[in-house]
Design a protein around this nucleic acid. Structure first.
Lengths: 223, 223
DNA sequence: TATAAATTGATAGTATTACTATTATATTTG
DNA sequence: CAAATATAATAGTAATACTATCAATTTATA
């Protein structure tokens, strides 16, 4: 549980952890350094043993917080989408013009993320790199249907549903609001991946974000 | 659905295999059954030992064809994109109207794939399911930059480049031809994934394909 | 303050994975 | 028919992904 504003907390599905990592120093250390280590060596090479060495703690202690590294990754990605959802609620509230609301929402899911100093043990900038490189791996497993039933991806779906609702406000006649919303969110991650690794098949340049491309897309489709 | 010309052989980057699997019975058996087994149990659980048991051959024999399961998966996905590229060349050649050409290209990368009987050891229908569930994993590794230099993803990029060229023919003023093309190809895979697993955030229904959504998108953006 | 309870650390152990190496046995080809 | 090549069988290694046990330490509570 993380305080953002004084009264707002990020809550993560209890099934994702054995012991809530936000409740202890070791737990917060696991979160902080797993983000750094996954970013450094990639999720495939990441192990609890290596993390234990990094934080000068024991492998077995980490297992008391997370059953396995997959659930840790789902935890981290859930945290990220909660953080996006929270900021999206803020950014779009009290805006009456639906087009403007959509613009704000698209900015949030397409921009380059920088660290938000409100959470000392989570570096959102690094976490967003993990989202780009590893998020789809949390979905693309043989367990996805069971995990979906358990609510592992609820926050992610909630972010997309918020965008779906705004799209419907902008143009109630458009028949593919759901696909457009999920396409923008997932597509933006993919465009960021391409700009880092397969530069020839994206228009995004090194430090550019995907906002212009997807804002242009949404407006041409909906208006 | 077109058939491959009888004398046409799909050529794959030589760095992806130790011994060309197309040149022997065992090799073709590896290809055929790896597709079936990966589809059945998922790429994470797939091992050369299990494949050896399935084809009544030995783990060590499979290692003489492929260095590791990652390269086998890249081989299979390269095969798939070559097959798509070949059919796209056929489907779009001799069509003078760029919009019609784009429609044909979009159909090829968004439709539901059924087996093409021309290749007895590759079931394209099953292979396309693997593409939906596993393709991004071939890209999203820490080795992506090296492997990209080695040309592992050339065929995939060639398919996208073909679509980029058609988009430019349709509308030379549009500034995001590359991102639109890569978004359609990757996005279509993602929409198919969502219709199978996270149905609430896509408009595609069970047996529907992504053609309508992306054709509509391309036309609204480009025309 | 004493004691119980919970947390963490250290060590050991297991099954599986991802290979490599060796040798024997088929099969193909020249 | 001999030589070359391909495959099968077996063994072995290091790493991974855990589980279990027990001791040491910290924290809570009566």
């Amino acid at each position: 549980m993380q305080k953002l504003l004084s009264n707002l907390k990020i809550t993560i599905n209890e099934k994702l952890y054995v012991k809530d990592p936000e409740t202890s120093e070791l737990g917060r250390n696991i979160l902080k350094n797993s983000i750094i280590l996954i970013d450094e060596i990639g999720f495939e090479a990441f192990t609890f043993k290596k993390l234990g060495e990094k934080i000068q703690s024991n492998e077995s202690s980490i297992y008391r917080y997370f059953e396995n590294k997959h659930k840790l990754l789902v935890y981290l990605t859930s945290w990220y989408w909660s953080w996006i959802e929270y900021r999206m609620a803020f950014a779009t509230t009290n805006i009456s013009n639906p087009v403007e609301k959509l613009e704000k929402a698209i900015i949030l899911v397409t921009e380059n993320v920088v660290d938000d100093n409100a959470t000392p043990h989570i570096n959102e900038g690094i976490l967003s790199r993990i989202i780009v490189e590893e998020f789809t791996k949390t979905l693309m497993t043989k367990e996805v249907d069971n995990e979906n039933k358990e609510g592992f991806f609820l926050v992610y779906k909630r972010v997309i549903n918020r965008i779906i609702d705004i799209i419907k406000e902008v143009n109630p006649e458009y028949p593919y609001a759901k696909s457009l919303a999920s396409n923008i969110v997932e597509g933006s991650l993919h465009q960021h991946f391409l700009k880092n690794h397969l530069k020839t098949i994206t228009n995004l340049s090194e430090k550019e974000c995907a906002t212009e491309f997807y804002t242009d897309m949404a407006k041409k489709i909906l208006l």
